[in-house]
Each structure stands twice: as C-alpha cells, then as structure tokens.
Amino acid sequence: MGITFFAIIGCENQPKPAPIKPNEVAIAWAKLTLFITQHTPSNSPTFASRAFGYIGLTMYESVVHGYEDYHSLEGQLNELDSLPKPDTEKQYDWVLSLNAAQASILRDIYIQTSEENVLKIDSPERRIYEQYSKNLKEDMVTNSISFGKEVAQAIFEWSKTDGGHRGYLHNFDKEIIHPDFPGSWKPPLFAQSFSHHPLHPHWGENRTFVAVNAEVEDPEFLPYDTVPGSPYYKQFEAVYKKERELTRAEKESAIRWGDDPDVSFTPPGHSYYIATLAAESSGADLITVAKAYAQTGISVADAFIECWKWKYAFFTERPNTFVPKYIDEEWESFWRDPPFPAFPSPGMPYRRRRLPRP
C-alpha cells in the first residue's frame, strides 16, 4: 500500500515519521480508504464504488476554497444544492481541513467497519493534526478542523438520499421476481459468494452524481442463440476455449483481478488505486490530487450505477450456465462467477426488460 500509508499508521513505539507534505496527506488518506474498503465486512463492488464517490468528493470540497482557480461542485452535482463555505473573516489551514474531513467521512460511510479499522483512522488523523497544527494560532486550527467536519457531514447527509445508503444491509433482495427466459441469469453453483438471488438488483435506480449520466442510452445486445457459429454462441465458446489453455501467469492474473470479497479493494478500488499511482509519480500539488480523487470516485460511482442498471435490464446468463448446457456438459470453469448477471456485449438492438419488484 506504500511507504506513506504505513509510516503514518505505524506503531507508537516506532521512530517518529518524517514530515508529510500536503499532497502526500491526500495520498495517504486515499491509501487508507483502499485498505478500509478491502477489510470491511459485508462490502461489495457496488457499495464500494459509492464510497469512493463520496470520499473523493469530500477530499476536494474540504480544500477547494483555498484555491481561487478552482470551484466547488455545489450546484453542479445531482441535488447537491448547498455545501458549507468558509468564513472570509477567518483563516484556515487546508491540510487540517482535509485531514478532519477524510477521517469523518470514512467513519460515516464505513460505519460497519471493525474497531481495529477505526483505530487505523484515528492514528493518521492524530499524527497529521500534530504536524500541521504546530505553530498555528488556536483559532486557525479550530476553524480548519470545524470546516472539514462540516463539509464531510453535509456530504454524508446528502449521500443518505441516493438510494444506496447502508446498502450492505440488503445486498440480496429475497423478494424480487426473477425473469425467466432463454438465456436469463441463474444462481451459480460455483461462485465467489453463493446466493439464490443476485447482488443489489435495484442499484441501477440510485441517484447518479452527475444528472446527465442517468440519461445515457441503453447499449445494444447480442440476441440469444444456441446455434454453433452464431455471435452469441461464439462469445461463450471463446470463454470456454480460453479457459482450457490458461497459463499459470494468466490464472494468477485472473485471481488478482477477480476481486473476491475481502481479497482486494474491489473493481472500483482499482481505479482509485491507479489514481494514487498517478498522484505519487506526478508529484502534483494538493488541489490537483484532491481533484483527481473526486473525479475518479464520482466516475466509478456513476459507472457502477449505469452498469448495474443494464445488468438487470438484460438479466443475462454467464458462461457457467451456458457452456455446460450447450458446449461441454463436463466443463468446470477456473473462474468463479460473481453473484450477479453478466453485462451484454454490443450487437443487435434489444428491448429492455424491467426487473419487477414484489
């Protein structure tokens, strides 16, 4: 996870860590966000994508008013009509503001995380506070921390109305009626986590961060066809053939990117991680790094809403049901199925199916 992260949350009896630069504070909090995401129970890619959206946005909004060339996203994001503003008569340290805001939003979004992880949030918050509050007037320190917490609280309150609040409490809706048609998704026998019902079937109904993202047109769909040589059949056949010739390196790569629960920081976490690598290698300043995390978090959050909307509009089967039935009845895939429908590839236009509520 990187030197900066472990230097900040190291044990109390270790040597005192070197001072951390403002941009490194943002990066360290991003790394801790990835760690908490991976090690929080009942998490899912859907809920994690949402978390990155709000955590990244909070980082940006906690510092943006310190940079006259940048603007708050208040009034630009979907139903985000008002956010706290700094008092022009007061002084602020923006690193202290970011520090307080990130600690606050992490605790709120991942309220179900372990006590051990809460301590991992407390430790860097305290150490960054100790470094950046030195030689500052008490009222400036208080102003900065209060503003950061106010931003985090306002964003968290806004998050409660998006349809995904505490989504980990209802990962699987046992009351949904499964569409049943040729090629429809069926519960897998060999899966990352077995459930008779798919993960977050109504996630696609959540509020997007950017309003226009909810208006993206439906993709096209390959029509169901079990005839060998048809486009639909050939896609499953390609998976079947590839699985039979996987090299050891390819299997290890598949496991790495499989994103089983508690094994990695989830698919949207990979995007947040790549943003972290870019932030580290570029040496960008604090506001640039904070903006990058906000853009990345918002993008993956909205992408997952749209992706899940289409998964349940098409409710498409996966290779582990098609291949044994139509290609090789003894086939056992190396890959374990995730507990939700597949995403269809481009092809002929297709009319959407709505997943009915009870």
Score class of each variant (00 low, 15 high):
R127N: 12
A100H: 04
N143L: 10
K149Y: 01
S114F: 09
S146G: 00
I177V: 15
L77I: 11
F172V: 13
A152Q: 13
N143M: 07
G75E: 03
S104I: 00
S144H: 06
R107A: 13
L77R: 07
H170D: 06
S72E: 09
L169Q: 11
E157Y: 05
S195I: 04
L189M: 11
G167N: 11
D93H: 14
W158K: 13
D139F: 02
L199S: 07
P179L: 04
L136G: 01
T113H: 14
I109E: 00
E79M: 06
W185M: 12
G163H: 04
Q76V: 04
Q112R: 12
I145G: 02
L98Q: 11
D87T: 06
G163E: 02
H170S: 06
H178L: 15
M140A: 08
P182G: 07
I111M: 09
I105H: 10
R166N: 09
Q131L: 12
L80V: 06
H202Q: 12
H197F: 14
S133I: 05
S123R: 15
Q153A: 14
H178Y: 12
Q76E: 14
D162S: 05
P198N: 08
F194P: 03
S123Q: 13
N143I: 09
W203D: 03
P188C: 12
I105V: 15
I121F: 08
P182L: 06
W158A: 04
S146C: 00
Q153T: 13
K120P: 01
N78D: 02
P124Y: 08
P179D: 11
P201I: 06
A152C: 11
F194D: 07
I109W: 01
K134W: 00
S104D: 07
A191M: 00
I145D: 01
L83Q: 07
I121G: 03
Y132Q: 05
T142D: 11
G164K: 01
A191R: 08
G164T: 08
D69Q: 14
R127C: 02
L96G: 09
T113P: 02
V95F: 04
P198L: 04
